[in-house]
Design a protein around this nucleic acid. Structure first.
Lengths: 169, 169
DNA sequence: GTCAGTGCAAATAATTTGCAGTCTT
DNA sequence: AAGACTGCAAATTATTTGCACTGAC
């Protein structure tokens, strides 16, 4: 973990990217969280280390790091961006209910190959296998009576989302 | 295509779901568009047929159809929801730049299996292979000088998004 | 006739941005 | 010192919702 952050600093220096406390903190927050945090989760995690950091800067920094290739943006069924510090090829487990994610090793799907001939007119760059389902917590959670867990966004109020998506620390 | 709509009507009747012009139109719009339209694209496509339909109803209807299992919601790198009328297992091609999507047959990745033992504490339900890259149009598009195509949302202004994401009819 | 379904406009929620001040190189 | 980075608050954009009305069964 610390190694990643060192490599991060190196990489930035090498590219002439300024190394600020905020950038380092954001990068570390993503590295530390295997659940692939949202911008808001990153913000919350970064605050204790920096005293203060605006959410806007978190967004700007995440965006910046994605653009420079130091982070990846991953999409979830909730249509809320999450971020991944592992930029080498790998796959994902994703909870369709809360958006929680976890990495799967590339080796878990080593046999998967691009289907030749199916990709006419498309420039394929990467292949991502996602296993979709329910995470532990959501599988246990009461099915909410008659309601099915499909109305996604509105149930993830700012307050609640603080807990679910990033269980581990 | 027409067959799908018939099956749609049947299925609704059987379940006691009211069949309205709007629902039929929304369903057909999704069926007809292999690029997996966004809510707004659906809205635009539905207008000529109905004379008028509010965007709010489009959202409500899409949400409803997803909840009843008649449509699937698919996530994109842009964090904007897109919809898919093919509810049987299959895979996707997705453009990382404009969000355009296309189906890949299940057969294209038939060898893919869930990695046993890797899924402890996770209730896997489905497996989705996504080939990420650049669609024809985005691959041709000028790289915008020094800018990389990563600042996603802001470049997809309402006006522009009308064109790109749903090329085919 | 009844109640689900719809339109409209206002409310939310995630994300972006203008501007002025601060800090890295 | 120069220009990149940040904070704050306001702006955007996608999506949802309250309420009154209409239409499907």
């Amino acid at each position: 973990v610390a190694a990643w952050c060192d490599r991060f600093t190196e990489e930035c220096r090498r590219r002439g990217i300024r190394v600020t406390a905020q950038r380092t903190a954001v990068f570390r927050a993503v590295v530390q969280d295997p659940a692939h945090p949202t911008a808001e989760t990153v913000h919350r995690r970064v605050l204790p280390h920096l005293g203060s950091m605006s959410l806007a800067t978190v967004y700007r920094t995440l965006e910046f790091l994605v653009r420079t290739g130091l982070l990846h943006r991953v999409s979830t069924p909730q249509a809320i961006s999450r971020f991944d510090a592992k930029v080498s090829p790998h796959h994902h487990l994703v909870c369709r209910s809360c958006g929680w994610m976890r990495d799967l090793e590339k080796a878990d799907f080593d046999g998967v190959r691009l289907p030749r001939g199916r990709l006419a007119g498309f420039r394929a760059e990467s292949l991502d296998v996602r296993v979709v389902g329910l995470c532990d917590a959501c599988a246990q959670a009461p099915p909410a009576a008659g309601k099915r867990p499909s109305v996604i966004r509105k149930h993830l109020s700012r307050a609640r989302r603080k807990d679910a998506p990033s269980k581990e620390d």
